[in-house]
């Protein structure tokens, strides 16, 4: 049998010439390197410039510790609330046919197209000391703006669509048959939800929660407007980074940034693991 040598100019009809393939790949990797990887390396390099000990020491400062505590607290309140909202919204939208659904869907997505700064401004207007409601709340000892509740509200607004957007496509795809089957078998509503619906959407829910959490811990613009940036009280980690940075406390700023970058790593790793293992149970527009 004579091997037929592949002529140089022959290639499968659905590929580009090798030179183009390699050129494009190298170009893409170069852009990603300059834009994504270089900044990431810079964060850790700057944090560790004066040694690990100093970096860690900067985190044990009281202001830094209170910022970390506040960020964790905000996420701990915001993420479950948005998960609950996401489940309720996805349930109402995918299990029932009703008028005005497209409008409600648009409204849920609205926070995506509003600047975080404008979002913060909204809450300042609503609850600030110069609004009637705000003045009343302050008088009764429940300040919202320049206090922790305001930070939570602004973060809720910013992360509002995350869980719902993840669940809706998945639940649409799964349809209603399994829930209907559970009902015909005599399950009550809650029993059906916990034994049929929740197991089907758990990975998508986790996926949405991950993204929601990443954004909740990292939100800057909206929180900057409502927090008042009171050190040790209303300063979250991203705001602390800004303060350190503006005070030329470079190591402290970048160490705090490195901590958040580690959070981003964890988020990406978990997210990717979910995409690889449970691709079929995640929203259709995610890949793998």
């Amino acid at each position: 049998m004579t091997e037929t040598t592949l002529p140089l100019r022959w290639r499968p009809a659905t590929t580009e010439p090798a030179l183009v393939r390699w050129g494009l790949t190298v170009l893409c990797l170069a852009v990603l390197g300059v834009l994504l990887f270089a900044p990431l390396i810079a964060v850790f390099a700057e944090a560790l410039r004066d040694g690990v000990a100093l970096a860690i020491a900067s985190l044990s400062e009281p202001d830094a510790r209170s910022a970390i505590r506040l960020t964790l607290l905000v996420a701990a309140v915001v993420v479950p609330l948005n998960a609950a909202f996401g489940i309720a919204a996805a349930w109402a939208i995918t299990k029932f046919d009703w008028r005005g659904k497209p409008l409600v869907l648009t409204l849920i997505d609205l926070p995506f197209s509003v600047s975080p700064v404008v979002a913060g401004l909204m809450f300042v207007l609503l609850f600030g000391a110069n609004s009637a409601l705000g003045a009343w709340l302050v008088a009764h000892g429940y300040p919202i703006v320049f206090a922790v509740p305001g930070i939570m509200l602004a973060t809720l607004f910013i992360t509002f669509p995350f869980v719902a957007r993840e669940l809706i496509p998945v639940m649409l795809e799964q349809g209603r048959a399994e829930e209907e089957a559970a009902l015909t078998l005599g399950a009550t509503g809650w029993r059906m939800f916990f034994t049929v619906t929740l197991p089907n959407i758990r990975w998508a829910l986790l996926y949405g929660v991950l993204l929601c959490n990443a954004r909740a811990m990292g939100e800057f613009g909206a929180v900057a407007v409502v927090s008042g940036k009171i050190r040790g009280q209303t300063t979250t980690m991203p705001l602390m980074i800004e303060m350190f940075y503006n005070e030329y406390l470079s190591v402290a700023a970048f160490t705090m940034a490195a901590l958040l970058a580690l959070l981003a790593f964890v988020t990406l790793t978990l997210k990717t693991a979910l995409e690889w293992r449970y691709a079929d149970q995640l929203a259709a527009n995610h890949r793998h």
Binding site: E3, L6, P12, A13
Partner: peptide, 10 residues
């Protein structure tokens, strides 16, 4: 049709 290249032959 030229969509595949044979391993051998003409």
């Amino acid at each position: 049709g030229g969509l595949e290249f044979p391993t051998a032959g003409r």
